[in-house]
C-alpha cells in the first residue's frame, strides 16, 4: 500500500521528556551517535505544545518530574490520541511502579543510570512497534475509505456474505432477486479490492469495530 511505504520513508523521531537538562542532552547525543533523530522536552506540557505527531518514533519518559508524573501522563496518552510507545527511565524505580508501567503498555522500564545498549534496544523496539501500529492504522483507514464508497444495498450484502450466507439466502433475507445480490456482491469485491471471499471476510473483520452504520442484521440467519 502506498501509505505504508510512505511511513517507512519518514525518519523516526525519538521524543525525550525529562526535567533534567543534562540527562536530556546526554540521551539526545547518545541517539545522535547512532544516527537517530531526537527531540527533547522538559515537561509533558512542553511535549504536548510542540510535538509533531506525524513522525513515527517513541517516547522516552522520566517517571518523576515536577508537574505531571510520567506514569500519569502515560495513562492520559490514549485519551489524547497519542499512540507513541513509551520507554520509562527513572532514578528510583520500584516494583509496583514498573508493574504499573508495563501493564499500561510500556516497552521498557529502565533505572538510571541505565545501560546505553538497553536503552537503544528499547528505542528500536519502540520505533518498530510504532511503525507497525501506524501501518495497521493506515490499512484500516484505507479499508474504511473503500467501505465508504459502498452504497447501503452493497453494505447489506457484504455484511451477510461475510457471515457465510449463500446468494439465495441473502436474496431471501433482503427480499431482492438473486441477480441483484450477485451484481451487488461483484461491486463489493471490486470496490473493496478483494480477490476472494476469505480476503473480504478478513477485511470486514478488521474494520467491523469501526463501522458505524452496520445494517440491522440481528435476525439474519447464520449458516
Amino acid at each position: 500500500m502506498t501509505d505504508e511505504t510512505e511511513s517507512h520513508e519518514v525518519p523516526p523521531v525519538v521524543r525525550i521528556i525529562d526535567d533534567d537538562a543534562s540527562v536530556r542532552a546526554a540521551v539526545e547525543d547518545l541517539l545522535a551517535s547512532v544516527g537517530l533523530e531526537a527531540r527533547s522536552y522538559p515537561s509533558t506540557q512542553a511535549f504536548l505544545d510542540s510535538d509533531e505527531p506525524e513522525a513515527p518514533g517513541c517516547l522516552v519518559l522520566d517517571v518523576r518530574m515536577p508537574g505531571q508524573s510520567g506514569l500519569d501522563f502515560q495513562r492520559e496518552m490514549t485519551g489524547l490520541g497519542i499512540g507513541l510507545p513509551v520507554i520509562f527511565i527513572t532514578g528510583h524505580g520500584d516494583v509496583p511502579m514498573s508493574v504499573r508501567a508495563m501493564k499500561d503498555g510500556a516497552v521498557e522500564f529502565l533505572t538510571k543510570p541505565f545501560d546505553d545498549q538497553a536503552l537503544l534496544d528499547a528505542i528500536h523496539d519502540g520505533i518498530g512497534r510504532d511503525r507497525l501500529r501506524r501501518a495497521f492504522e493506515c490499512e484500516i483507514a484505507a479499508l474504511l475509505a473503500r467501505y465508504s464508497t459502498l452504497n447501503a444495498g452493497e453494505r447489506a450484502v457484504m455484511a451477510l456474505v461475510v457471515k457465510g450466507l449463500l446468494n439465495k439466502q441473502v436474496a431471501g433475507f433482503l427480499e431482492v432477486s438473486e441477480i441483484t445480490v450477485k451484481v451487488r456482491r461483484r461491486q463489493v469485491m471490486l470496490k473493496m479490492g478483494a480477490t476472494s471471499l476469505p480476503q473480504l471476510v478478513r477485511m470486514y473483520d478488521s474494520i467491523a469495530a469501526q463501522i458505524e452504520d452496520v445494517p440491522a442484521l440481528e435476525d439474519a440467519p447464520v449458516r
Binding site: 533534567d20 543534562s22 540527562v23 542532552a25 546526554a26 540521551v27 547525543d29 547518545l30 545522535a32 551517535s33 527511565i89 532514578g91 528510583h92 538510571k112 543510570p113 541505565f114 546505553d116 536503552l119
Partner: peptide
C-alpha cells in the same frame, strides 16, 4: 543520581 546518569549516558555517547 541525575548527573551520574547523565555522565554514564554521555560517556557512552
Amino acid at each position: 543520581n541525575q548527573p551520574l546518569s547523565a555522565i554514564a549516558t554521555s560517556g557512552n555517547a
